[in-house]
Design a protein around this nucleic acid. Sequence first.
DNA 1: TAGATTGTTAATCGATTAACAATC
DNA 2: TAGATTGTTAATCGATTAACAATC
Lengths: 214, 214
Amino acid sequence: MNLENINNYVPDPTVRRLSHYKFLLENMKKEGRLIVSSTLIAKELGFDSIQVKKDIQYSGIVGQPKKGYKISELLAGIDEILNWNKVEKAILIGAGSLGTALMQYNGFKEIGLNIVASFDNDHKKVGKFVNGIEIIEMDRLEVAAKIMKIKIGIIAVPEESAQSCADKLIGGGIKAIWNFSPKIIQVKKDIIVENAQFIQSLALLTYKIRVNKI
Amino acid sequence: MNLENINNYVPDPTVRRLSHYKFLLENMKKEGRLIVSSTLIAKELGFDSIQVKKDIQYSGIVGQPKKGYKISELLAGIDEILNWNKVEKAILIGAGSLGTALMQYNGFKEIGLNIVASFDNDHKKVGKFVNGIEIIEMDRLEVAAKIMKIKIGIIAVPEESAQSCADKLIGGGIKAIWNFSPKIIQVKKDIIVENAQFIQSLALLTYKIRVNKI
DNA sequence: TAGATTGTTAATCGATTAACAATC
DNA sequence: TAGATTGTTAATCGATTAACAATC
């Protein structure tokens, strides 16, 4: 473990929950609320209040006994941990239905993820724009990624081409890959890979259906 | 904990990994391979071989020392655990870009999830078909769900309407919800909810980018 | 046989949960 | 004040990892 980062370590389950606190707190802020207790967050999200308190500890934000935490401070703390207070450019591979859905989703900008271009090898799609994002020929990926100094690549292609896409992204200097294909990709260990496969999530759902005899 | 199910208990992280073994093993089967060792599975997926061995134990499948496990037996065991050997009907709410992507994806049928209809309150979309799936008026959801005896509902609508969609699904007799909206929905405790929010996954990616100073 | 792999039990690690004093 | 909530330390729980005999 890297000693320099030891104080920044946050468990993965906590990171996942923090993303939910973010959305809840943004809504509360919009409604004009200023202070929130761990009890209320827990109640709204169906979590345990002790767990919420523990999660908040990682942000370093301190609250006031009897009152709770300042929502603005909590939001700033969460954005800091999740790195959502900086804008990061990303490119997307695969302008199929899933890729299109990702381009259409406007929520990414709010948390600092800016999809600047997409790539596809279907010539019918090349040159078109989806939600302001151009679809570019696949062959130009590596050069474009290098010129734009992109660090994040998003893979939204079928299983068969996921590995070759990952190789191209890495060839283009990408450091982090968000993989939506069901394929586990092989990369050098200095490349960060996060799998967003919803098949994993479906496996949990169908497993629970069986166990609960529904 | 339910004693009747105690022998069927499988940890969530194992369930997630099993879904990956499934895809890897299906590919190996296609290539004509009959036997596989935990070492090879681990190597292909970047997992630990001891962990793979442990995961396989949950399926009850026994292997042969020195040789490994029969791929066909492993696949049957995984399908059994994940409940992927039965066909389950599901309905989808929200025929936007994400809903469309889900309807276009043909991989669900292979694991027994059959999306039989989708619902949307946009009259321009109602009556159209996406990949053979009809888009039906929202008002007809509850009655349709009851008639078709649907147990699984998929939510692919914006955050604001996620809760009301969940209520409608439950009103229609649905027992399990696969939620793609960033909203944590409130349900009675006998309803199974699985969240497929990719924002959670993005949080992990951007967190790792910060910690690794990429 | 030798060596790789399985099967199983034990040790370790880390996240969750509990407990409780301090605080406003 | 009384009581709810924070902050922090300890206990528990469960998943991962290690160890090793059994096996072909």
